[in-house]
């Protein structure tokens, strides 16, 4: 399908981005460590294949990628794949929980807003979603941290586990992780939640104007049945695609809250690799992030085809 050219496009862009560096990727390395002599640099260049023409470098990089070899970190020599593998589960679980939160509350708020159109509740909810959409997540993190973490001392402000995590019971461990995740989850979800709520509101409003809703009312169905059985079903359809489109936003946002709350996920890995100019890691995470987005969109499209009967059953005119 179109996934193949997309894959090449993604890798090509990632590759180009890195090699935009004026003076080549190794300059930064030697800048950090002035003791590296000119010949040592040359050796490194040959080792990393940086002296060959760009297309060749790209080609050999792709081949290694397909073998799942992202090279080794410039900083500590660890295999990039390993580094990413340690960080991905954390980010993925947070993203997954985030998507759940976004879906459940976004739909609830959006529907409530649409059903009570133009009421005071609607106006308040609309304002809150607009605010949620506009709030800078790093600011929100700091506010939450200082209020719940420092002033009230209720929630821990960094990491995933407390000092005594290993000694806790199973439920203790679970609770511990949840306490650590509460604030990051809130921060991670707020923008997406606001977006989904607003979209749901307008989708539901559109649906409620349709003729089949009038038919449902004319049939004498209760208002509940009309709204939820007939209305909601239709309004939820485009939501699937939208959720798929939220993936890149969630991943990008992870940089901020993972750094602030010291969560060892992909975002923080990416950030530290950017700071230390660790190019293999940067490229690896970049490509992987894009691939995850692709997968997310693909799954969303698949789910949509499955759910919308207009696509699932091709039109047949049975006279």
């Amino acid at each position: 399908m179109e996934l193949v050219p997309l894959f090449f496009g993604i890798t090509f862009i990632s590759f180009t981005v890195i090699h935009l560096a004026p003076g080549g990727p190794l300059d930064a390395l030697s800048a950090l460590n002035p003791k590296v002599s000119a010949e040592a640099k040359e050796k490194l260049e040959r080792l990393y294949g940086l002296d060959k023409p760009l297309l060749v470098q790209y080609g050999s990089w792709i081949i290694r990628l397909l073998k799942c070899d992202f090279g080794n970190s410039f900083v500590d020599g660890e295999k990039v794949t390993l580094k990413i593998a340690k960080a991905i589960p954390v980010t993925l679980s947070i993203s997954f929980l985030s998507l759940l939160l976004i879906l459940i509350f976004g739909v609830l708020i959006g529907v409530a807003s649409a059903v009570h159109e133009d009421s005071p509740l609607d106006k308040i909810l609309t304002f809150f979603t607009l605010a949620g959409f506009s709030v800078p997540t790093f600011w929100l993190s700091l506010l939450l941290m200082s209020f719940f973490g420092v002033s009230l001392g209720l929630l821990p402000v960094s990491g995933l586990y407390s000092l005594f995590h290993e000694e806790m019971s199973f439920w203790g461990k679970l609770l511990d992780v949840l306490k650590h995740l509460l604030m990051p989850l809130l921060v991670a979800s707020i923008t997406g939640l606001a977006g989904i709520a607003r979209f749901m509101r307008s989708s539901m409003r559109e649906v409620l104007k349709q003729n089949y809703i009038r038919t449902a009312r004319a049939k004498g169905l209760s208002e509940k049945e009309v709204l939820y059985k007939h209305g909601l079903k239709n309004a939820l359809l485009p939501m699937i695609t939208l959720l798929g489109l939220s993936v890149p936003g969630l991943l990008g946002g992870s940089v901020i809250f993972e750094s602030i709350f010291s969560i060892p996920g992909m975002g923080r890995l990416f950030f530290s690799s950017v700071f230390s100019r660790d190019y293999p890691v940067i490229m690896g995470v970049l490509v992987l992030g894009a691939l995850l987005t692709l997968v997310g969109n693909f799954l969303a499209d698949l789910a949509y085809c499955f759910v919308d009967p207009r696509i699932r059953y091709s039109s047949e005119e049975s006279a």
């Binding site: 089949y212 449902a216 004498g220 359809l237």
Partner: peptide, 30 residues
């Protein structure tokens, strides 16, 4: 009264039927 003693049919049947619910179900629920 609505839907029981007095029933309606409308102009555009294409948009008057819920596209994601089966015909049989739409009849049953009435």
């Amino acid at each position: 009264v609505r839907g029981k003693e007095i029933s309606y049919i409308f102009q555009d049947p294409a948009s008057s039927l819920n596209p994601v619910i089966q015909i049989g179900e739409q009849l049953d629920e009435t």
